[in-house]
Amino acid sequence: DESNKPILLPNESQSFERSVQLLDQIPSYDTHKIAVLYVGEGQSNSELAILSNEHGSYRYTEFLTGLGRLIELKDCQPDKVYLGGLDVCGEDGQFTYCWHDDIMQAVFHIATLMPTKDVDKHRCDKKRHLGNDFVSIVYNDSGEDFKLGTIKGQFNFVHVIVTPLDYECNLVSLQCRKDMEGLVDTSVAKIVSDRNLPFVARQMALHANMASQVHHSRSNPTDIYPSKWIARLRHIKRLRQRICEEAAYSNPSLPLVHPPSHSKAPAQTPAEPTPGYEVGQRKRLISSVEDFTE
């Protein structure tokens, strides 16, 4: 099969070098950035008060330690540790928490760990991170309901609301924008112990962030949302095809390698009803078989 044979790379090609550099910018793992907010007593309706908090309760602090690993920003190499735009020179604080497994990295933009500057009256330095995160974990210690939209931002799609209760338990629920209701189930609340709260809140936030990324990708319907490693695979396959075309153009005697095509017509299947918005969006999480067989 010609399409699977190794090909020689061009010795000097600026377009090839640019493509390789672009490939280096696509990590081999999925990345997520999640905002974390603490809401104190009497702050449920005040964005400024929430963003001005420099610490929270003892249970909130224990919750943070379970979310991930504490890292010092100045020691991080952005090409190895995903920071979601946090500055490593102290502009966004000294520490944050991050978490990773074999296929993804997540960083938490924690408002109480970011510096509260006197010259920044409206807390814009914090909002440029927190307001651009799709998902926020809100530790609501106010005793009042927290409403979506209290923290203004164009991309605040989903809130994971943590409400501490007695007996070391917590109520965990989801809020989302109306255009996200087909992807996020907000109907079920959970009672979770303090011990298990970081794991549950983190998983709910990661799932909500993946759904938000799919939702946000609708602005470019021709580019369905893939995982990062599938995006790398697609980029490599496009690069291979372009090299083959350039080689055939410079030397017409060489065969032009095309991806294999299936001449056999697909079997006719009964027509199915058109899937609704929710089903269609969830299918976009699934990769096409052509990603692996071309």
Rank of each mutant, 00 (worst) to 15 (best):
L48N: 09
A271N: 10
P6K: 08
E72R: 08
R282T: 12
L256D: 15
L83Y: 14
I151L: 11
V39A: 02
K5D: 15
V289M: 09
M210I: 10
G66A: 02
S142W: 00
I50W: 03
E246M: 05
R69A: 15
P275N: 10
D30R: 04
S15N: 08
A265F: 07
A208S: 05
S142H: 01
A265E: 12
D194Y: 00
Y225I: 11
I110Y: 02
E168Y: 04
I151M: 12
V279F: 12
R282S: 14
P221R: 04
C76A: 11
D101E: 12
I191S: 02
L22V: 05
D102Y: 04
P27E: 14
I230S: 09
P78E: 12
R282Y: 07
S46I: 02
V172P: 00
H129A: 10
N45F: 03
K152F: 08
F146T: 01
G182N: 05
I71C: 12
I243N: 07
A267G: 12
M104H: 12
V184A: 03
H109N: 03
Q25W: 06
V138G: 00
K117A: 12
E54C: 05
A111S: 09
T150S: 05
A271H: 11
L86I: 11
K228W: 09
S44G: 08
D125I: 08
R242Q: 15
T274M: 10
E278Q: 11
Y38L: 00
I161D: 02
R284M: 06
F16K: 04
T116R: 06
Q241K: 14
H55R: 04
R195K: 13
L48W: 10
D120H: 11
G131I: 15
I137E: 00
I34Q: 01
Q105V: 14
A265V: 12
N196L: 01
Y249C: 14
V119F: 12
L256W: 11
T274L: 09
R282C: 10
P10K: 08
C98E: 15
L8W: 09
I243T: 12
F155E: 08
R69T: 15
R234G: 09
D133R: 03
P6W: 05
I7E: 09
I161K: 01
G153W: 09
A35M: 04
D102C: 08
L171M: 08
G153V: 03
Q14N: 07
D30A: 04
I137T: 00
H100P: 04
P226I: 05
P270L: 10
I137C: 00
V162C: 09
G280Y: 04
G66K: 03
K237F: 08
K178Y: 10
M104F: 13
M114Q: 05
S19I: 13
L165V: 02
E245G: 14
K117I: 09
V279P: 14
P226G: 08
M180E: 01
E12N: 07
R18H: 12
D179F: 14
G42M: 03
V39E: 00
S261M: 08
K5G: 14
H129I: 14
W99L: 03
Q154A: 15
L233I: 04
S227E: 08
G85I: 03
A248T: 11
G153R: 04
S212F: 04
W229R: 06
L8V: 12
P252I: 10
K190R: 14
Q175I: 06
T186N: 07
D102G: 06
H129Q: 09
V36L: 02
R232M: 08
N156T: 08
H122M: 12
G280D: 12
F146Y: 12
S212A: 14
H122G: 15
C76W: 07
L23H: 07
I224S: 10
H129N: 07
V135F: 01
D1F: 14
Y167T: 05
L67K: 00
T65N: 15
E272G: 13
K5M: 15
Y167E: 04
L165H: 02
A208R: 00
Q175T: 09
V158K: 01
S263I: 08
H32T: 04
L113P: 03
C169T: 10
S187I: 02
N11H: 13
E54N: 07
G85V: 03
S193T: 06
Q21R: 05
I243R: 06
D120K: 09
C244M: 13
H235P: 05
K228Q: 07
E2D: 11
I286C: 12
P275S: 09
G280P: 14
K121Y: 13
N45R: 11
T150V: 13
T116M: 06
I151T: 03
R128N: 06
F63D: 00
W99D: 05
L9M: 15
E2F: 13
G131H: 15
I103H: 07
I34V: 03
T116C: 11
Q94D: 07
H32R: 01
T96H: 09
S217D: 05
T96F: 04
L239R: 05
D118H: 13
L51G: 03
A248S: 09
F155I: 04
R284V: 12
S57M: 01
H159P: 00
Q241T: 10
E54L: 03
Q43A: 02
G131S: 15
S288T: 09
Q77P: 12
L148P: 15
H129M: 12
V184Y: 05
S173I: 04
W229N: 12
P259Y: 10
Q43S: 02
T274G: 10
R282W: 05
S28V: 11
P27W: 05
K33M: 11
M210T: 02
G56M: 02
F63E: 00
R218P: 04
I151S: 02
L37K: 01
R59A: 00
Y225F: 08
V257H: 14
V88H: 06
E17A: 10
R128V: 08
I224A: 10
A208T: 03
K80P: 14
R242M: 15
D125A: 14
S288A: 14
I137M: 01
N220C: 08
I71P: 09
L113W: 03
N209I: 03
G280E: 10
F134L: 04
L256Y: 13
Y38I: 00
I110A: 03
H235I: 15
K117H: 12
N170E: 00
S261I: 08
L183K: 03
R195F: 05
G90Q: 11
L64P: 00
A247E: 14
M210C: 02
P270Y: 09
H100C: 13
S193W: 01
A189T: 14
T112H: 02
S217Y: 11
F292D: 14
A247R: 06
Q43H: 02
K127N: 06
I110E: 04
S212Q: 03
L73V: 10
H216M: 08
E62G: 04
T65W: 07
E294P: 14
Q94L: 15
L67F: 01
T293H: 09
A231S: 08
K178V: 13
K126A: 06
H55Q: 09
S173R: 10
L174Y: 10
V289T: 12
A211R: 02
P27A: 07
H100Y: 10
T274D: 11
G280F: 05
G66V: 01
E2K: 08
T65I: 06
V188N: 09
F199A: 02
N53H: 01
A247Q: 08
M180P: 01
E294N: 09
L171T: 03
